[in-house]
């Protein structure tokens, strides 16, 4: 079941996605995290953040909206408190999801992780507003996405995966910009911007007005984008978006993913990743796949 991401070996391709798995604590009460390929920790910024006001969650057909707003204790507290705790809960390579509101912040956060041995991959979330550019999202502009990539690559001693937003016209263009700036890999997709309105109050359900859509509803969108990006670049892709079964994971790999992140499914079923990991070998056997990495890009003929 092993897969390789820019030289980092994972025992299987299943990775809980950032923001649905905290820093591992809640799930470690339920199952042995060592069955996982890796996990992507909660998006971490330079300063601690409370995040957005309540309510932050709304339901929709086939998924949910969230506007948590990058609530996290800040990179220093994570390194001091969460990293030693993660070492007790999980013994594989960890993916550090890093946020930022300026190019300098991204670079500084990544630099601080150079000496954290268990962090094997930096997953740079560029779906954040750039406070120095009127709040324009880094991930929506190929130039800004490339600038973040270059700045992070200049300081990072670990493979850098840029996590792309789907809220763009042509995700392949952003992917090419990141690859051209030296990214070691890509992770896609982040959530799709959405909204719900309460009929009685006539106000958006989420206090932030908009939230990110995740869950099975986004799976075909994510699959199509992984397909497009696989055609556009030659660096490994972590496929993410609406995966909730071993079959979904295999489909994501056929579209071009080298590994697969599972997000919202964990919130509905805290054992979702465990079940997928357990079901993958039988699925591979059924599909006549000798090694799971054969699936990657298998639909591109």
């Amino acid at each position: 079941m092993t897969v390789s991401l820019a030289g980092v070996e994972l025992k299987n391709p299943i990775i809980p996605a950032s923001g649905t798995f905290g820093y591992g604590r809640e799930y470690a009460e339920l199952y042995d995290l060592d069955i996982l390929g890796s996990f992507s920790w909660k998006g971490t910024t330079g300063a601690p953040r409370l995040g957005n006001p309540q309510p932050r969650i709304a339901e929709t057909a086939g998924g949910m909206l969230n506007a948590v707003g990058l609530q996290n204790p800040g990179i220093d507290a994570v390194i001091e408190t969460e990293v030693p705790n993660i070492a007790k809960l999980f013994h594989g390579p960890v993916i550090a999801n890093v946020g930022g509101f300026s190019i300098e912040e991204y670079a500084e956060n990544c630099r601080k992780l150079n000496d954290v041995d268990q962090v094997a991959i930096l997953e740079v979330n560029i779906s954040c507003p750039n406070v120095h550019a009127g709040g324009k999202n880094f991930g929506c502009d190929p130039k800004a996405a490339a600038e973040v990539t270059r700045a992070v690559k200049a300081v990072a001693k670990k493979p850098v995966f840029m996590k792309l937003t789907p809220n763009v016209t042509d995700i392949a263009e952003i992917a090419r910009a990141c690859a051209g700036a030296g990214a070691d890999g890509l992770c896609l997709i982040n959530t799709l911007l959405g909204m719900r309105i309460d009929l009685r109050s006539r106000k958006p359900v989420i206090a932030n007005r908009t939230g990110g859509l995740s869950g099975p509803a986004v799976f075909p969108v994510a699959l199509r984008m992984v397909w497009d990006v696989y055609e556009a670049v030659d660096i490994p892709i972590i496929g993410c978006g609406g995966v909730s079964s071993a079959e979904d994971a295999a489909e994501m790999m056929l579209a071009g993913a080298a590994a697969v992140e599972v997000g919202a499914a964990n919130l509905k079923d805290p054992y979702a990743c465990k079940t997928i990991v357990e079901n993958l070998p039988a699925l591979c056997e059924k599909l006549g796949v000798a090694h799971i990495s054969e699936l990657t890009g298998g639909a591109h003929q």
Partner: peptide, 15 residues
């Protein structure tokens, strides 16, 4: 609260 997971993982209901 409007909750995502109900078991402390998603930070959907933090106050």
């Amino acid at each position: 609260a409007r909750m995502g997971c109900g078991f402390g993982a998603c930070m959907g209901c933090t106050v």
